[in-house]
Design a protein around this nucleic acid. Structure first.
Length: 840
RNA sequence: GCCCCCGUAUCCCAACGGCAGAGGAAGUCGCCUUAAAAGCGACCGAGUGUGGGUUCGACUCCCACCGGGGGCACCA
């Protein structure tokens, strides 16, 4: 160690020995156990509850900057609420099922549990050091049998309610992870987790019927909008994707011997039905095969196989030329009786709507392109404005050619605006039994089966006689068989399938030989109800105690990252509504308010190993201490903004903490001294800051709370050095307030201050200061006098000055009098006691 | 292409429709030091992306555009 370093060590040690302070208080806090949530006071109603929750981590390695930020933000509110006198539930656990543990187990020839629980131990230690006010007695891991027992039980309950079912359909398949993916886990045609190109597979899989709640999930977003970030509400709206329109059925002219099914389409523009000149069905929909005639079959199959080979990524390119094949059959327009050809194409999606579309080239650009490519006729049915120079016209205008001259139809919508034309068309179609007004959603059912090991086994037994048989409740949990290492290698089918002994069971119904379902549940199932488990985490008889869930829930503040804006939040909302309908809880939405925190970047970019710009949380904590890192993260920006570590200064935070701490040593009055009679100017600052802090905390503007605390530190310093002096009771009041404000963000420093101020340990348990309203009123205020909105003079006036007096004073001011001399005063706006605006 | 959010000093960010600056960082200058760093103190600094509109008064409300971020997307 150089002499220089030695000097620095000495200086810092004498001012603020970060390590020593952290060590000292961590031990004391463990002893005090201040953060245990008391069910009884909430059940009895003696105290109002607050449930603060932060997204529980996946145990991959140690905590990182992102965790540090969420926890720091979240803890501000949890600690504030506790000081405000609420009974706070602030639990933490681990989302400990998942792929990384399994991959690590394959690589190291170990059991996934080894990796998982070792990481949990590491993270647990880090959390404790980080000083978040968690109730650790409630911790659990989703990979514990005691937890997944109830994940399985909930699955069976959802199945009983008709919300879980099994079906065969093409699913997203990740060739790298060798498992299916939910639609939500596919981003731009690639696996969200590993980036591999997703392919399709035909498989029988379990689904949750999320679509049953599509409308309610959408409607409730209106209630959440005031307390949720608009970007998240917006993302969910887009994801649910409601659109209004109609189902219309087109009969298909028989081609002779075989009977052909009719084609039902979904359209948002039933009013354009007169412009339909062809029909298109998705090439990969079963309907296409049913429709195609024998002489067209060969061409169809060639085309279909060609499309199947193309990846999703190719199909997603929107600028591709339109392709398709004629199926050789003719559909009949229900309003005109016109016959039109039916084609198969890949620009129609098999799994949206009905997988078939009426081709209206005059009103839809895609249909226009298709018609142009195939030489099909184009008819305009909405009159575009005179200056329209596009191709298909999808805007507002009167209906034309509906029907066209010479065409016979019982329905005539010519001249009607789009909305009326839609209504009239639907009404007519309903009358003749050829269509119905309907609503379609983009949201699909949630595919929950996974062909992997480290998850909750699906508690179903497949019996050749009785079919799907639920595992009887008393036999839950279905424990995972003990597999490890190479047994877990992905081979396209579930690793559980290789555990023959485990898989083979007697059917619970008939006793005959049967097999367990060998898939495990998507880990998002685990996290869709974990917030309920925290209310009774050790209950061995039920998933959660409904009485406690109703007392504690819903969550008052949920903090987490945008990456879960649709997935986890939507699934949790679905579970909540389903459980409500089963009578297990009374609330409709799990998260009353949601705070989505930004990311921690470095030099404008996401931290990553490949960029070499990663910042180690451990290093930062070692260099600046827990409090300085937490303070930096909270102060850097509004919670929802990204933080660039290159733009912030943990060293500056540490400096500030040292200044605050030094104040506590300078206070020269005894603990318990009443602030009454203390310096009024300083007391005003103190009470003003507390008042402001309350308002700011309620709106989650934590960065500004820190700035206000800094102001109070500056004011206290000035009072001690060049004001009322260190023995003035107002100084003690100010510094104690600093300690309390600081305890929300920098608990170690705050506790040390509290102790140096002569108090017993446990600042987290002291009540929030009461604001003295009288001290919020200033002795005199500065009123500005404007002429036409420009400031021309300032007046010192009493805060309770009347509007008339203020106006008189303003007009009497020599500067103002001079400026308005000779001008006509047209209007005087007075906002006592702050402002007078004279309009000349 | 449709939808949502954001543009304030060199940087990060404050500002119930009412004096554009609270706080921090950087920079400059002092004090301390043999010196430097650290520490302490002080100073410097923009008229709010652009153009309109509403208003006595607009960073704030409305419209259009530019720039940045995000969601959805051959979704019928």
């Amino acid at each position: 160690m150089s002499e220089q370093d030695a000097n620095r060590e000495t200086t810092e040690a004498s001012a603020y020995d970060v390590e020593a302070i952290q060590e000292k208080w961590r031990a004391v806090w463990d002893e005090l156990d201040l953060f245990a949530a008391d069910d009884s006071v909430v059940l009895s109603g003696t105290k109002e509850k607050r449930y603060a929750l932060t997204m529980f981590p996946y145990p991959s390695g140690d905590l990182h900057m992102g965790h540090a930020e969420v926890m720091a933000l979240h803890d501000v509110m949890a600690r504030y609420w506790r000081m405000k006198g609420y009974e706070v539930l602030n639990p933490m656990g681990w989302d400990s099922f998942g792929l990384p543990a399994e991959n690590a187990a394959i690589k190291n020839d170990t059991h996934p549990a080894t990796y998982t629980y070792a990481n949990i131990d590491t993270q647990f230690e880090s959390f404790k050091r980080y000083g978040v006010s968690f109730d650790w007695a409630r911790r659990f891991n989703t990979s514990d049998p005691a937890y997944y027992h109830w994940t399985q039980w909930l699955f069976l309950k959802l199945r009983e309610a008709g919300l879980a079912y099994r079906k065969n359909s093409p699913v997203n398949w990740c060739p790298n992870d060798q498992t299916v993916l939910a639609n939500e886990q596919v981003v731009d045609g690639a696996c969200e987790r590993c980036g591999a190109e997703v392919t399709k597979r035909e498989l029988t899989q379990w689904y949750f019927r999320t679509t049953q709640y599509a409308q309610e999930l959408l409607d409730s977003l209106d209630d959440l909008a005031p307390t949720w970030p608009s970007k998240v509400v917006n993302a969910q709206r887009n994801w649910i994707g409601r659109s209004e329109g109609a189902h219309v059925t087109f009969e298909v002219a028989s081609t002779g011997s075989t009977t052909v099914p009719p084609i039902t389409v979904f359209t948002t523009r039933p009013d354009t039905i007169f412009g339909t000149t062809f029909m298109v069905v998705a090439v990969d929909a079963p309907l296409a095969e049913e429709l195609v005639t024998d002489e067209h079959r060969a061409a169809f199959e060639t085309y279909r196989d060609e499309i199947r080979k193309a990846s999703d990524i190719d199909r997603l390119a929107t600028d591709r030329a339109k392709t398709g094949v004629d199926l050789g059959v003719f559909a009949v327009n229900p309003v005109t009786g016109a016959r039109m050809p039916v084609w198969a194409t890949d620009y129609v999606l098999a799994d949206y709507g009905t997988g078939a579309v009426m081709g209206v080239p005059g009103g839809d650009q895609r249909d226009w392109e298709f018609a142009t490519a195939m030489g099909l006729p184009i008819v305009r049915t909405t009159q575009p404005p005179a200056d329209f120079d596009g191709e298909a016209f999808a805007g507002e205008g009167p209906a034309v050619n509906s029907p066209a001259a010479g065409v016979e139809s019982e329905l005539d919508i010519n001249g009607l605006a789009v909305e009326e034309a839609k209504r009239a068309t639907i009404e007519y179609l309903e009358k003749i039994g050829r269509g119905t007004g309907t609503v379609n959603f983009r949201l699909r059912d949630w595919l929950l089966s996974r062909q992997r090991y480290w998850g909750a086994p699906i508690p179903i037994i497949h019996c050749p006689v009785d079919g799907e048989v639920p595992v009887p409740e008393e036999q839950l949990p279905v424990l995972l068989p003990d597999l490890k290492g190479a047994d877990l290698k992905p081979r396209g089918t579930s690793p559980l399938g290789a555990a023959t002994e485990w898989k083979t069971v007697a059917c619970p119904t008939c006793g005959g030989p049967a097999e367990r379902d060998t898939d495990t549940m998507d880990t998002f199932v685990d996290s869709s109800w974990y917030f309920l488990r925290y209310v009774s985490p050790h209950d061995e008889t039920q998933a959660f105690d409904s009485t406690l869930a109703n007392a504690w829930g819903p969550i008052d503040l949920y903090v987490g990252g945008d990456e879960h804006a649709v997935l986890h939040l939507l699934y949790s909302r679905f579970f909540t509504k389903a459980l409500r309908d089963m009578g297990l809880i009374t609330w409709d939405e799990p998260f009353s308010s949601y705070l989505s925190q930004g990311k921690v970047l470095n030099q404008g970019r996401k931290m990553s190993k490949s960029l070499g710009n990663g910042v180690s949380l451990g290093d930062q904590l070692a260099e600046f201490g827990v409090d300085a890192v937490r303070l930096t993260l909270v102060f850097a920006s509004p919670p929802e903004d990204n933080i660039d570590w290159a733009d912030v200064s943990p060293a500056g935070s540490l400096r500030f903490l040292q200044r605050a701490l030094r104040l506590s040593g300078d206070v020269d009055s005894a603990a318990g001294t009443s602030p009454e009679g203390g310096d009024v100017a300083l007391r005003r600052v103190t009470h003003h800051v507390v008042h402001e802090a309350e308002r700011l905390l309620d709106s989650h503007r934590f960065n500004v709370v820190v700035a206000r605390t800094m102001e109070l530190v500056n004011a206290a310093r000035k009072a001690i050095d060049s004001g009322c002096g260190a023995d003035d009771p107002a100084v003690r009041e100010a510094v104690e307030t600093v300690a309390i404000l600081l305890s929300l963000v920098a608990p170690y420093t705050a506790e040390e201050m509290w102790s140096r101020l002569g108090h017993e340990p446990g600042i987290a348990g002291v009540p929030w200061p009461t604001v003295d309203e009288a001290l919020l009123v200033e002795e005199s205020v500065t009123a500005v006098v404007q002429i036409k909105g420009k400031v021309k003079a300032r007046l010192e006036v009493a805060p309770d000055i009347s509007e008339a007096d203020l106006e008189a004073a303003a007009l009497a001011d020599p500067t103002i009098a001079g400026l308005i001399a000779g001008e006509t005063v047209r209007k005087v706006i007075v906002r006592a006691p702050k402002l007078v605006n004279i309009v000349v």
